[in-house]
Simulated scan of single mutants.
Amino acid sequence: MTKTIMLANPRGFCAGVDRAIAIVERALALYGAPIYVRHEVVHNRFVVEKLREQGAVFIEDLQDVPHGATLIYSAHGVPLSVRQQAEALGLTVFDATCPLVTKVHVEVKRMHQAAMSIVMIGHKGHPEVEGTMGQVDSGMFLVETVADVATLQVPDPTALSYVSQTTLSVDETRDIITALKQRFPLITSPKKDDICYATQNRQDAVKALSDACDIVIVVGSPNSSNSNRLREVAALRGVDAYMVDNASLLQAAWFDGKQQVGVTAGASAPEVLVQAVIAQIKAFGADSVSELPGVEEHIIFALPPGLRDK
């Protein structure tokens, strides 16, 4: 029985991840090691280890950063308290927060200034959620599921709005928003959908891939929210779906009896890992590779001032 590998399109790095990695690499080139990065700059083990080898030091607590050193915020964003602490420590700061996450931060501040309570749809403990909820000192409420909406208590249902973590499942978020609107009919939506273009495109691509395949492999690290959502999207369409950090985690038994093998990658997973996965699946018996058509992405986010080429 022959096996064919089908590649999702688009897959892998998005503009926000490209920018975040470039910020760390450019800072290392201009200022030399060590460059301190608050949290993993993007959620991919391979990328983080490669930057660590170049001299990046990943920390969670700013107390671990020497006075006057150079600090980079991860693509997930940070609470205002972290920015204030960095200023007090006299750090040189470059912000690698994805501009689409920054957009949500701006929405939160606008809603707060309008005296609204704000519901955050997201996953507790995720750095993007902590950063977004940390843009204001009060009046934010986290919901993770439709069930959470049923027990949510807010001060004034007539002065309520919501925002979303950018890397969630589009379908899951839609269900939560529907539940919010049913329970709080006057809730205000953000000016634009918070789910980022790359998340939307990759989820649409994995749906098309799932319809054409009987197994889907998602390349991504365990702590990558958008990679986890891709695996869930495929699984919910009735396809065997697995997420792997690298090719060594693939198991030959997964592919027994499978003819159409789909491969995609989360927005923080580099193409080199995808190619290694393809090579391993070929070793399991796949004899051809094709790429599905999909949305072409042309978005580029500029580097911060101070890191741009002269």
Rank of each mutant, 00 (worst) to 15 (best):
Q260H: 14
A198R: 09
P304N: 03
V233H: 13
A179Q: 07
S225Y: 08
N226E: 11
D214F: 01
S290K: 09
V272E: 08
C196N: 13
D256M: 13
A269Q: 01
I300G: 04
D194F: 04
E296M: 13
I299Y: 01
V216D: 03
H298W: 11
I300A: 12
L273D: 01
S225M: 08
I299R: 06
R174T: 15
G238S: 08
P305I: 06
A269Y: 01
D175V: 04
A198D: 12
A269K: 02
K207S: 10
P222Y: 02
G220Q: 10
F301N: 04
I187T: 06
G285W: 06
V218Y: 00
V219H: 00
I299S: 08
G257I: 03
A235G: 10
N246H: 11
I215L: 03
A283C: 00
A265T: 06
G294S: 04
A235L: 04
Q203G: 11
A283L: 03
V216I: 14
P305A: 14
A205Q: 03
A269M: 01
V263S: 11
A269P: 01
S288C: 11
S290Q: 14
N201I: 11
K181Q: 15
C213P: 08
I195K: 03
N246F: 02
T178Q: 15
N246R: 07
K258E: 07
R231Y: 07
L230Y: 14
P270Y: 05
A276D: 09
A283N: 02
Q182P: 02
I187N: 02
A234E: 05
G285V: 09
Q260A: 13
K207M: 12
S290C: 10
L209R: 10
P270L: 04
R231E: 10
V233G: 12
V274Q: 06
N223H: 02
A267S: 12
Y197P: 07
A212P: 01
G238C: 07
S221G: 05
D256P: 06
S290A: 14
G266F: 01
P190G: 14
G262H: 03
I177S: 03
V219E: 00
T199P: 12
T173V: 03
L186N: 14
L180T: 07
A247T: 06
D256I: 14
K181L: 08
R202N: 11
L250F: 03
Q251K: 13
G266D: 01
Y242Q: 12
G257P: 06
S227H: 01
R237E: 04
A269I: 01
D175G: 10
G294P: 02
R231C: 08
I300N: 13
R229C: 11
N223E: 02
A252L: 07
F284H: 02
A269C: 02
M243R: 10
T199V: 15
E297V: 15
Q280T: 15
L230W: 15
A179L: 07
T199W: 14
Y242E: 05
